[in-house]
Design a binder for these strands. Structure first.
Length: 297
DNA sequence: AAACATCGCAACCGCTCCAAC
DNA sequence: CGTTGGAGCGGTTGCGATGTT
């Protein structure tokens, strides 16, 4: 907090990079490597801050960058990954060789978002806009939770066998329960047709607009699951789960493992994903069985 | 042709994380 | 254990290009 922007400390250049600056940076890095970004500008003879150099290299000068239009395949991948990861651009970019997080983020904001809207799909939730509208009318408690974290318990929930709710809710990211919500009581009793979901991954709408809203603290990659018996809308849930699950299967390593598992104590990891260390945790939760549980005929 | 609006991209800003001390 | 500073991330802004009136 209160840290200066790097360009304030000294009189450093800002704005667009000149070809000369690009050349200096490129020459330096190809000859000496990156080392420490903070020392790069000095050593490369640039009036820029290290952060700016880093960004320029990563987003523009790196030799392995693809550039140019996104292919249909890349587009599909981005959509699928976004469905699961939300706005975790760096993780999405990690699955797309030659593309940068910035590039993908811009592409998403300028193009893909609109494209999905045109198709009647909410770009935040990846659900048909109409369904969203229906769900907005529901006023009961909304439990924000991570789809990925609750996955291991879907079968139990569907079968009404799930009673250890606290255990799971402790694992969940639940930043904004409505005050009247009681996760324990809401989840333990569940019957067919009593489950609906809302606001999947709606990080942008649920996020506070304060300046410190960024990054991990925002509930990107969260799912809102509404479980308290007032909707017939189980169709919506099965639609969404199916889509998410397919995405997960398509890209089983999407980076979740790296970050989320890293941050979970090992016991929780095992609870969440099974104790397989193969990385293929999704194999513990076959798509067909899970989605079938939620179709209920 | 000029003024204005919109779009897309590059870069910046502010934040968190994490390792080093 | 607290502090510091670098790295990295996501949101936002600024500006040139392009389209529209």
């Amino acid at each position: 907090m209160g840290r200066h922007s790097c360009s304030v400390k000294q009189k450093l250049r800002k704005g667009l990079w000149s070809p000369e600056e690009d050349e200096k940076l490129c020459n330096y890095i190809t000859n000496f490597g990156i080392g420490s970004w903070s020392s790069v500008p000095k050593l490369a003879g640039l009036q820029r801050c290290g952060k700016s150099c880093r960004l320029r290299w990563i987003n523009y000068l790196r030799p392995d960058l693809k550039r140019g239009m996104f292919s249909q395949d890349e587009e599909d991948k981005i959509i699928s990954l976004h469905q699961v990861l939300g706005n975790r651009w760096a993780q999405i970019a990690a699955q797309l060789p030659g593309r940068t997080d910035n590039e993908i983020k811009n592409f998403w904001n300028s193009s893909l978002k609109k494209k999905l809207m045109k198709q009647g799909i909410d770009p935040n939730t990846h659900k048909p806009l109409k369904e969203n509208q229906i769900i907005k009318d529901e006023e009961n408690c909304t439990i924000k939770t991570s789809m990925l974290q609750i996955l291991p318990h879907l079968n139990e929930i569907a079968n009404g066998q799930f009673t250890e709710s606290k255990q799971v809710f402790d694992l969940l990211f639940v930043p904004d329960f409505q005050s009247n919500s009681n996760p324990t009581s809401n989840v333990t009793k569940l019957e067919h047709g009593q489950m609906t979901e809302t606001d999947f991954g709606s990080s942008s709408t649920s996020r506070m607009s304060s300046s410190n809203s960024s990054n991990m603290c925002s509930n990107q990659n969260t799912a809102g699951i509404q479980i308290n018996g007032m909707s017939e809308n189980s169709e919506a849930l099965s639609w969404d789960i199916e889509n998410k699950m397919e995405s997960l299967f398509q890209y089983p390593y999407i980076g979740i493992k790296n970050e989320e598992l890293k941050s979970s104590p090992s016991q929780e990891r095992d609870q969440l994903y099974g104790n397989s260390t193969s990385g293929d945790f999704m194999s513990n939760y076959p798509l067909s069985s899970l989605t079938e549980e939620f179709k209920w005929g």
